[in-house]
Amino acid sequence: MKIGLFFGSFNPMHIGHLVIASYMANYTELDKVWIVVSPHNPLKEQADLIHAHDRLEMAKLATEDSEKIEVSDVELKLPKPSYTIDTLTYLSEKYPHHEFCLIMGADNLKSIKKWKNYETLLKYYKIFVYPRPGVDLSEWIEHPSVFITNTPQMEISATFVRKSISEQKSIQYFVPEKVIDFIEKKGLYRKSN
């Protein structure tokens, strides 16, 4: 089975993430998409990151009705910081019957040369890229491991969602209802946090 790994903090999971996952699972050669909730991206600030288990639960709530999208906690069990290449190596050894591919945004592809063992990633794994506004991918168009998709673009971010919640603005339609309920029940992303 060909599985696309969609890594992220998903802080929180919103419809932009779901559009990407759904497109990759249904409009590419991938059979399934695994949402991989990361403890902390070594290249990003940790300031607004809520507990990984809450982010994992929100991802599960958002995708529980999907047959082709699953949520994985693999990175929460591996040594920190988590590097994509280490996770891929671990999964490839644990599930040798699966072919793992990466799903990433054009912005991440632009910075991939900063990643640990990026040459190995590009040599052994296919990368399915979703576009980002204003990101030029011309240097990657001919790369044999890189597949630039026509995933619909949405101008929505987890930062926008968190800011909206802290300002007590509605996030209806930006975030799945089950995730909104979870956020409200736990009082997540309030200014007092």
Rank of each mutant, 00 (worst) to 15 (best):
84 T>K: 11
65 D>C: 12
96 P>E: 01
37 V>L: 09
124 Y>S: 10
14 H>R: 10
155 E>W: 04
41 N>E: 03
2 K>L: 12
74 V>P: 05
32 K>F: 15
49 L>T: 02
129 V>S: 00
2 K>D: 12
37 V>C: 04
106 A>F: 13
121 L>A: 02
30 L>C: 13
22 S>V: 04
140 W>H: 04
4 G>Y: 13
187 G>L: 13
75 E>L: 02
120 T>P: 03
31 D>I: 09
61 L>C: 10
184 E>R: 15
140 W>K: 08
158 A>L: 02
144 P>H: 10
47 A>F: 13
150 N>G: 03
139 E>T: 10
183 I>A: 01
97 H>Q: 15
108 N>H: 08
93 E>S: 11
10 F>E: 06
8 G>R: 08
127 I>R: 09
21 A>D: 06
125 Y>W: 12
31 D>G: 08
29 E>R: 15
177 E>I: 11
168 Q>G: 01
91 L>F: 08
156 I>M: 13
154 M>W: 12
91 L>I: 11
66 S>L: 06
98 H>G: 02
168 Q>V: 08
98 H>Q: 10
168 Q>K: 15
71 V>F: 12
75 E>V: 02
77 K>D: 05
14 H>I: 12
181 D>A: 12
87 T>F: 14
55 R>I: 07
35 I>M: 10
36 V>H: 05
188 L>N: 04
73 D>P: 01
186 K>E: 00
118 Y>W: 15
98 H>Y: 15
179 V>G: 00
